[in-house]
């Protein structure tokens, strides 16, 4: 039997009295593209952050690539190297140009010599179509370009999985397409991806599974065909029906 590359077992997370995640279990196989949808405040970002322990769950266990990250003895910095994370608000390092945004992790975390790191960073920029922008600083790039650099930064670490937290929802509509193209290409190359996104065109095209979350639990999951054509729960149907209204027409 093949092991899942990401496994969550009964994850609970609360802030004060608020139970945000109420026992989430999930298995994701290598090469899968999982899209997570759900209303605002439902705990999608919290769930994604629990995977790389940016948020530490109150209980439950997380494995990525065979390593238990919730094990107190684990070297979390080492484990995170190979879990790419892309933020809604991008978070490029503002004082570094595009190239150095990518190479700094290679040098500092992987100990790669500077010339090799530079070469690899340029390669990653090429992968997202931005090799001409290597010398520009975040403040000189458009929102879409910034997010592509952020994706390149994560890819440079040779991640085993990529986690995306609404990577396009802070972008102007006309810039969303270029980011989605990069993500689709990545999906077709076989990258394991977990994406919180309401871009249903993207989900339809590349998702192997859609998970609908609400109030800290998984309500329903299934293939895109099944989820769009024939959801089991009314709540899923309602939410899918409202997505383009909630998140804009371009999502279709």
């Amino acid at each position: 039997m093949v092991e899942p590359i990401i496994r969550l077992d009964n994850i609970h997370k609360s802030y004060g009295k608020d139970d945000i995640l109420k026992g989430i279990s999930l298995e994701i196989m290598e090469g899968e593209v999982v899209v997570i949808i759900g209303p605002s405040g439902t705990g999608k970002s919290t769930l994604l952050r629990c995977i790389n322990q940016l948020t530490v769950p109150n209980s439950g266990r997380v494995w990525v690539d065979g390593v238990e990250l919730t094990d107190p003895k684990v070297d979390i910095n080492k484990a995170r190297r190979h879990i790419g994370f892309v933020f809604q608000d991008v978070n490029l390092f503002n004082h570094l140009n595009a190239l150095n945004n990518i190479s700094i992790g290679l040098k500092l975390v992987l100990g790669m010599p500077a010339p090799n790191a530079k070469e690899k960073a340029l390669l990653e920029l090429k992968r997202v179509g931005l090799e001409q922008k290597a010398d520009l600083y975040p403040g000189q790039l458009s929102g879409g370009q910034k997010q592509r650099v952020a994706i390149a930064r994560a890819l440079a670490m040779d991640p085993r999985v990529m986690l995306f937290d609404e990577p396009t929802s802070a972008l102007d509509p006309e810039l969303i397409g270029e980011v989605l193209e990069v993500m689709k290409k990545l999906a077709r190359e076989g990258m394991t991806m977990v994406c919180v996104t309401h871009e249903m065109g993207f989900a339809r095209e590349v998702a192997s599974r859609i998970i609908f979350m609400e109030h800290g639990v998984v309500v329903e999951e299934g293939s895109p065909e099944q989820m769009f054509a024939n959801p089991q729960f009314n709540r899923t149907r309602e939410f899918l029906g409202k997505i383009s209204e909630l998140y804009g027409k371009h999502t279709e």
Binding site: N52, R80, R81, F85, F93, G105, L108, V109, A154
Partner: peptide, 19 residues
């Protein structure tokens, strides 16, 4: 977000603060 982004790359807290 800058600290979080640094930590997701696998930097330690000290590396993130310093660099």
């Amino acid at each position: 977000g800058q600290m979080m982004a640094a930590r997701t790359l696998g930097m330690t807290r000290l590396q993130a603060i310093r660099h």
